[in-house]
Computed example of a mutant assay.
Amino acid sequence: MLALYDYHLPDALVAQEPARPRDSARLLVVREALEDRGVLDLPDFLRPGDVMVVNDTRVIPARLRARRGEARVEVLLNRAEGDGTWHALLRNARRVKVGDTLAIEGSEAIARVLARPEGGTAILDFGSDPAALEQALAAGEMPLPPYIHRDAPRGADREDYQTLFAARPGAVAAPTASLHFTPRLLAALEAKGVQRATVTLHVGAGTFLPVRDDDIGKHRMHAEWCELTEAAAATINTARAEGRRILCCGTTALRLLETAAMGIEDRRSPIPPFRGLTELFITPGFRFRAADLLLTNFHLPKSTLMMLVAAFAGLGRIQAAYAHAVAQGYRFFSYGDATLLERAA
Results as ranks from 00 to 15, higher is better:
Ala253Gly: 10
Cys248Gly: 15
Leu277Asp: 13
Leu277Trp: 12
Thr182Ile: 06
Ala253Tyr: 08
Arg268Thr: 14
Arg184Phe: 11
Gly170Glu: 08
Leu179Ala: 03
Ile216Val: 10
Glu279Asn: 14
Gly243Ala: 12
Pro210Lys: 01
Pro183Cys: 06
Asp160Ala: 15
His202Asn: 06
Phe281Met: 03
Leu228Gly: 10
His180Arg: 00
Asn237Pro: 10
Ser178Arg: 00
Arg245Leu: 15
Asp151Glu: 15
Glu224Asn: 02
Glu190Arg: 10
Thr238His: 12
Gly193Leu: 00
Arg168Pro: 11
Ala173Cys: 01
Ile148Phe: 03
Ala261Ser: 05
Pro183Phe: 06
Arg184Ile: 14
Leu179Phe: 02
Leu189Pro: 01
Thr235Asp: 14
Glu230Leu: 13
Phe281Ala: 01
Met262Gly: 15
Tyr147Glu: 04
Leu256Glu: 05
Arg275Lys: 14
Thr235Lys: 14
Leu186Lys: 03
Ala231Cys: 07
Arg158Asn: 06
Thr235Pro: 11
Asp214His: 10
Leu201Ala: 02
Trp225Glu: 14
His202Pro: 05
Leu228Ala: 09
Arg168Ile: 14
Ser269Phe: 14
Gly170Phe: 08
Arg150Lys: 03
Ala232Met: 09
Arg275Met: 13
Glu230Lys: 11
Pro270Val: 08
Thr200Met: 05
Asp157Phe: 09
Arg240Trp: 07
Thr252Asp: 08
Ala166Pro: 12
Asp157Cys: 11
Gly263His: 09
Ala156Pro: 14
Arg150Met: 08
Leu185Glu: 01
Ala173Glu: 10
Ala187Tyr: 13
Glu190Cys: 09
Ile264Asp: 15
Arg255His: 14
Thr198His: 07
Leu164Asp: 08
Tyr161Trp: 03
Asp214Arg: 09
Ala187Gln: 11
Ala167Asp: 15
Ala260Gln: 00
Met221Thr: 04
Arg154Ile: 07
Ser178Thr: 09
Pro272Trp: 04
His219Glu: 04
Thr251Tyr: 11
Ala174Glu: 13
Pro272Tyr: 12
Ile236Pro: 09
Gln162Met: 12
Leu186His: 00
Thr251Pro: 06
Leu256Val: 02
Val194Phe: 09
Leu185Lys: 01
Glu242Tyr: 14
Ala205Asn: 00
Thr251His: 02
Ala156Gln: 15
Leu256Trp: 08
Ala166Met: 12
Leu247Arg: 01
Leu247Ile: 01
Ala197Asp: 04
Tyr147Gly: 00
Gly204Lys: 02
Ile216Arg: 03
Phe181Gln: 00
Phe181Asp: 03
Ala239Gln: 08
Tyr147Gln: 02
Asp215Cys: 07
Asp157Arg: 06
Ala197Trp: 02
Gly206Glu: 01
Val194Asp: 04
Leu164Gly: 11
Ala234Arg: 07
Ala260His: 08
Arg150Ala: 05
Ala171Gln: 07
Asp157Thr: 10
Glu224Phe: 10
Val194Thr: 03
Leu189His: 00
Ile216Asn: 00
Leu186Cys: 13
Ala231Met: 13
Pro270Arg: 01
Ala241Tyr: 13
Cys226Arg: 05
Glu190Met: 04
Pro183Trp: 12
Phe181Met: 04
Val199Gln: 00
His149Ile: 15
Tyr161Phe: 09
Ala260Leu: 11
Arg154Leu: 14
Thr259Ile: 06
Thr278Gln: 05
His149Tyr: 13
Ala205Trp: 07
Glu230Phe: 09
Leu201Ile: 09
Leu247Trp: 04
Pro210Cys: 07
Ala152Asn: 13
